[in-house]
Structures are given as C-alpha cells and as structure tokens.
C-alpha cells in the first residue's frame, strides 16, 4: 500500500455512563487507518461498537451520556480531538461526510430536497442560495435522480426510501469530501435498491477520489465492496486485514464462526449452518479476559484472565487472539 494515510484512529475509547453508574465501554481501545481512495469496512453485530466508532470520528457522540475518554483521531495529520468545536464543524460535511442508515429521519421533512442538498455548499463554500441550488441540481443528477430540476423542489416525503438515500448521498458529496463514512447505508432498503445505491456510492466515491468507510453487518456487502476489513466484537477490533485475508483465511475464532454462520447463496447442497452459541456480552460487565471467550470453542485458561491485543499475523493482517488457529 503506497497511498497516503488519510485517517488514523489510535487507541480510541468512547464510554457511556449509565444511570445506574455502570460504564459501558462501547468502543474500547480501537485503532485503524484509512488510506486515500480506499474502501475500508467496519463489520460487526449490534452492540459491537461499529456505529459509535463512526460517530466518534466525527465527534458526534452526545455528551452526556457518552464521552471520548482517550485516543486520537488524526485526519490529514490533525488530531480532530484537539480542535475547537467550530473547527470541527468546518470539517464535518465538508472534508468528511457521513451517510446514515435512516434516510427517513436524516432529512428535514419541511425543507425542499434541493435546498437540503445545497445547504452544505452554502455553509462551507459561502455560496449564494441561487448558486447552491444550481449545484444541488447537478448533484441530484449525479446520483441519478430523474428530472432533477423539478425534483429539487420536492419534499422528502415525496421520495421513496431508495431515492431518499440517493438524496443523502448527493448531500454527502456536495463539498467533494475526502472521506465518506456510511453507517449501514442500505439496511432499510430492498435488495435490488440496495444494490443500486451501494454501487452508486462506490462509483461516486471513486470518481471523487475519496476514501470510503463502510459500516455494516452484512458480510456479503463487505466482500463486494471493501478493500480492507476491520471486524469488531464487544467494542474492540478483533481482526483486521485485506478483504481476502478476512474471508479466505480468517484467524480470529469470532470471524471464523461468523463466516460459517451465514448461508451462501451459491452453496450446492443443504448443510447445517454452524451457529455461534450464546449471546454477545453485556458491555457494562465485560469479562476480564477476552470478550469472546465464553462463546469461543478454542478458548484456553489464558483467555479467561488476559485480554489479547491486536498482533500481526502477516503483513497488514492482524488478530486479537491468544490461540494459533489454522483452519482452511
């Protein structure tokens, strides 16, 4: 990999204080980086901390109850955690854009779509409303919304789910961001529309030469779009590597189990799925050792007491596991 590092997250810890005094370690010592122009996936199940990681990157954690307690988030060399709120606002929606899961609730129902798409340009590029509108129509055309000049005057409720997500993408791309973070961008959409939207997102980020962080629970989507993958479990990255490393030779027991638990569309015969027994742990009461240990079939005594950290398997492929597992 010879491209430049665009985003570097180091030892990020985001905790949430609960009413009963319990501290939920939603993101606990997470480090990863994103290079210019690449697509990095963060994959995990609910409660694994993938969305909180994304929100932390943009400093969008509601405080209270949440707080980034440690770590650094370096974007183009600047630690975003050290700058003022005003400076952070100049980055958000400008150099880094975020696309959320729910296109229904992320758009303002009482402002026309064209105006909303143009808003980031008005704010960040100090463009006049009229000019921003023209640019907004171009953007709507770019995300393949038919009849963009007319549709710019419509309101979000007049759009279908897929079209609304296109509007979100147009808004995200408005200021030509260098990094686009999409949190489950197509989970609420139908399969065929999901394919259209993701394809569009990937193509447009490539055209803009932007890097793309894709947060999802869908392993198929990861396999189709990601260059590199970070697998999260209970607030930590348990394995990271290229998509081929992760899918073809997973090394962490959780990743291995996850791969076996999803049915493959192309499998010839019907065979039993291998399920992961038990439940993900309560983030307020994590075991002192490895968080996956209670569900892990390879676990040893050491795993119960000592928490593994990410270590190198081979070039760029890392895992957080004490055991040496070789399964093909």
């Amino acid at each position: 990999m010879n491209s430049r590092v665009l985003l570097e997250v180091n030892n990020l810890k985001t905790y949430f204080g609960m009413e009963d005094g319990v501290i939920v370690k939603a993101v606990d010592d997470v480090s990863f980086d994103v290079h210019e122009g690449e697509t990095v996936a963060i994959v995990g199940e609910s409660g694994s901390g993938k969305s909180v990681t994304a929100l932390s990157t943009l400093r969008l954690i509601p405080n209270p109850p949440g707080e980034i307690v440690a770590g650094e988030i370096k974007f183009e060399g600047t630690n975003l955690l050290n700058i003022s709120e005003e400076e952070a606002r100049a980055v958000r929606g400008n150099k880094i854009a975020m696309i959320f899961q729910e296109p229904m609730t992320s758009l303002n129902p009482s402002i026309s779509v064209g105006r909303q798409v143009g808003e980031p340009i008005e704010v960040h590029e100090k463009m006049s409303i009229e000019d921003a509108q023209l640019r907004s129509q171009e953007l709507l055309a770019k995300v393949r919304i038919p009849d963009p000049i007319k549709r710019a005057k419509s309101y979000p409720h007049e759009f279908s789910g897929g079209m609304r997500q296109r509007v979100m993408i147009a808004m995200g791309l408005a200021c030509n961001p260098k990094l686009i973070i999409a949190d489950e961008p197509t989970t609420a959409l139908d399969v065929t529309v999901q394919a259209q939207v993701l394809y569009l997102l990937k193509t447009l980020t490539q055209e803009n030469n932007a890097a793309f962080v894709l947060i999802t629970h869908d392993l198929g989507v990861v396999a189709r779009y990601a260059d590199r993958v970070n697998v999260m479990y209970a607030g930590k990255i348990v394995e990271s590597g290229t998509a081929r490393d992760i899918f073809n030779s997973p090394k962490h027991p959780y990743t291995i189990a996850l791969m076996k638990s999803v049915p493959h569309l192309n499998s010839k015969e019907k065979k039993r799925l291998e399920s992961i027994e038990g439940q993900p742990p309560d983030l307020g009461r994590l075991p002192s050792g490895c968080a996956f240990e209670p569900r892990c079939e390879y676990a040893s005594e050491k795993c119960k007491t000592q928490r593994p950290t990410l270590t190198l398997v081979k070039e760029a492929h890392k895992k957080a596991c004490w055991e040496d597992i070789n399964e093909e």
Binding site: V193, A195, V221, V222, F247, L265
Partner: peptide, 24 residues
C-alpha cells in the same frame, strides 16, 4: 434479485456478472 445479493466471498464477487435493475 439473485445478482443483487452479494456473496460473502471477495473472490466470487470479483468475477461476478451483475444484472443491475433500474428503477423501483
């Protein structure tokens, strides 16, 4: 519909043909 569903394997995905559906 079949083509829209990604298969959890980067090797298969890299060589797949897509039938992308227009509209909704």
């Amino acid at each position: 519909l079949l083509s829209a569903i990604p298969v959890p394997s980067p090797d298969i995905e890299a060589n797949r043909e897509f039938v992308m559906l227009e509209g909704e």
